[in-house]
Simulated assay, not measured.
Amino acid sequence: MDVNSMVAGYHDLLVQIRRDLHRIPEVGYTEEKTSAYVAAYLEKEGLLVTTGIARYGVVGLLKSGRPGPTLLIRADMDALPIQEETGHDFASTHSGVMHACGHDAHMAMALVTATVMNKIKDRFCGNIKFVFQPAEEGPGGAAPMIQAGVLENPGVDYALACHIWPTIPEGSIGVRSGAMMAAMFRFDITIKGKGGHGAMPHQCVDALEVGCQVVGALQRIVSRHMDPLNPSVVTVGQFRAGRAFNVIPETATLSGTARTFDRTVWKSWPNRIETVVKGVCESMGAGYDITFEQGYPPTINDGNMSKIVAKAAANLVGPDRVLEPPPSMGGEDMAFFLEKVPGCFFCVGAGNSAFAGIHNPRFDFNEQVMKNGVATFCQAALDLLTQA
């Protein structure tokens, strides 16, 4: 029986799992109910299950019983602090929390992949590690799981993960070699001026005005210091200053993010940003404090693994439905796994004008697309783990 035929019979199970998990969303590092559900399912399937990794991480090990490589299939478990507005009868039962980024679907696809591959384990060699990771939305559970040893015993040779992707059409699979998602970086700045009466600016150091100059100067890092053929973004998303219309504020606080696909640029952000902030503040007589948080590295797909996934997908959905999505400036902590082993982070097309996009209180998708993710996982696993 071919993979599409095998997976077709699991549609109802996929939907049930997705909806079960959709009802109990939990933000990063609180995934107690979610991890218990995942562990119970994997144990029922007879996999060797380990729980409590990086707090709530779960690993299910499927052994074929024959020597061979080990493939890691990863799904993220956490939800977002968003109040759901879909009106579904399976909507979130946790106030203010929602699976608005498809992680419920990612878990459902990985769990059903475990079921399918368990039933046909006589058709491949080696092992499959199903890794369910907490806190992808932040602060990041991939690195702690790696530190806890999920890439060992047995050692992982390949890694796969997928994401529901509303920007490519339903029924398609998106595969991109090389840079897929950007490296993330956060900065927080406090401008220290001298407050006073709004009618007497000459007696003050206006922290609000200094902050405005800092925002403008930060934009020129990208426009005048970066190679225009190497995309980068600096965004100031928060700016707070002042409490009264006629008072010059003494302090201003700014927070923002910087994104790039280049690891060297990613590492250079602290020096670049502080040089700008220091120069502006000194020229205007202000002081400053600045802190940096280096987020996820760039998500880089291995070229050979991307070819394997694209070929597997083409056999399932047709070559005309295997697309190359543009790289995204969003961040993804699957990047940490891809730094360690060759792998591919692919997209399950869910584009449909009837549904809102990710990180939206009305986010949704056609549940039929999940079977494409499961089939791609299964076919790629067979191609990787079947000895010639």
Rank of each mutant, 00 (worst) to 15 (best):
T299M: 14
N301P: 03
S35P: 02
L14S: 06
D206Y: 07
G102L: 12
N304W: 02
F261T: 03
Q219N: 12
T260A: 13
R263M: 14
T253V: 13
A199L: 05
F124M: 06
L47C: 00
A91N: 10
M305F: 00
V150C: 05
R55C: 06
I300P: 02
E282R: 13
A39W: 04
W266Q: 10
F355Y: 15
Q16W: 07
G174K: 01
F261Q: 01
P298L: 05
L382T: 00
H88I: 00
E324Q: 11
L208P: 02
G211T: 09
A143R: 15
K121L: 05
V175Q: 03
A217T: 09
P67D: 13
T113M: 01
S95F: 10
V317I: 13
A312W: 00
W269E: 08
E282T: 11
A108D: 03
H94Q: 08
Q16H: 12
F124E: 02
L384T: 03
S268T: 07
W266A: 15
P69Q: 13
G87A: 10
A350H: 04
L382H: 00
A182P: 04
C204I: 09
T299P: 09
A356C: 13
V150P: 03
M226F: 12
C204E: 06
L382N: 00
A36R: 14
L323I: 14
M107V: 13
K129F: 01
L47W: 00
G357D: 13
Y37D: 01
P319I: 09
K33V: 09
